Amino acid sequence: WVPTKREEKYGVAFYNYDARGADELSLQIGDTVHILETYEGWYRGYTLRKKSKKGIFPASYIHLKE
Rank of each mutant, 00 (worst) to 15 (best):
E24A: 03
Y10T: 07
Y43R: 00
E40H: 09
D31R: 02
K51W: 10
S26D: 09
W1G: 09
Y43G: 00
K54I: 15
A13C: 12
G41T: 06
A13F: 04
E40W: 10
I29M: 07
W1F: 08
D23E: 12
A22F: 09
R49C: 15
T4L: 08
Y46W: 06
I29P: 04
I35E: 00
D18P: 05
Y15T: 13
V2T: 11
L25H: 02
D23N: 11
T4K: 07
K51G: 09
S52P: 06
W42Y: 05
F57R: 01
G55R: 01
H63W: 12
R20S: 07
L25V: 07
Q28L: 10
Y17E: 00
D31V: 07
R49A: 13
D23H: 11
K53M: 10
T47D: 06
H63E: 11
E7P: 10
R6I: 10
G11H: 03
D23Y: 07
H34R: 15
L25C: 04
T38P: 01
E7W: 14
R44S: 06
I35Q: 00
G45Y: 08
G21P: 01
Y39E: 03
D31W: 05
Q28I: 12
Y10Q: 05
L36E: 08
H34A: 13
G41F: 05
K5A: 12
I56S: 04
G41N: 07
T38W: 11
S52V: 07
L48I: 11
W1M: 07
H34P: 00
W1E: 07
R6F: 11
L48P: 05
E8F: 12
D18E: 14
K54Q: 12
I35V: 05
E37N: 04
G11P: 00
H63M: 14
P58D: 03
T47R: 15
F57G: 01
S26C: 06
G41M: 05
E40M: 14
Q28T: 11
V12Y: 08
V2H: 09
V12T: 08
L64V: 09
Y39I: 10
K51N: 08
A22Y: 08
Y39V: 07
A13M: 02
R20N: 09
G45D: 03
K50S: 12
S60W: 07
S52W: 14
K50L: 13
L36M: 09
Y10I: 10
H63N: 08
L48Q: 06
P3G: 06
Y17N: 00
F57H: 03
I62E: 01
Q28N: 11
K54D: 05
P3V: 05
Y17L: 01
P58S: 03
S60L: 08
I62V: 08
L27A: 00
E37K: 02
T38Q: 13
G41V: 05
K54C: 14
H63C: 15
A59Q: 09
Y10G: 02
I29A: 11
Q28E: 10
L25Y: 01
A13Y: 04
G45P: 01
Y43P: 00
A13L: 02
G41H: 07
G21H: 12
E8H: 14
N16V: 07
R49T: 13
F14C: 15
E24F: 06
Y15L: 15
G21R: 09
T47I: 15
Y61M: 13
H34L: 14
V33W: 01
F14G: 07
F57A: 01
H63Q: 13
P58K: 02
A22D: 13
S26V: 03
E24C: 06
H63I: 14
P58L: 10
E7N: 14
G30T: 00
D31P: 02
G41C: 07
G11Q: 04
P58Y: 05
Y39A: 09
K50F: 12
D18S: 11
D31M: 06
E8L: 08
E24L: 05
T47L: 15
E24Q: 08
K54H: 12
W42G: 00
K5I: 08
D23W: 10
Q28P: 00
E37P: 00
S60K: 15
F14Q: 13
V2Q: 12
K53N: 09
L25N: 01
E8C: 14
A59N: 03
K51T: 10
P3M: 02
S52E: 13
K51F: 08
Y43L: 04
T32N: 08
E40L: 12
K50D: 15
N16S: 10
N16A: 13
I56A: 08
G11A: 02
I56L: 11
L25K: 00
H34M: 14
A22G: 10
D31G: 02
E37F: 08
R44V: 07
G11I: 05
T32V: 15
K54F: 12
A22V: 11
K9Y: 09
D31T: 04
A13T: 03
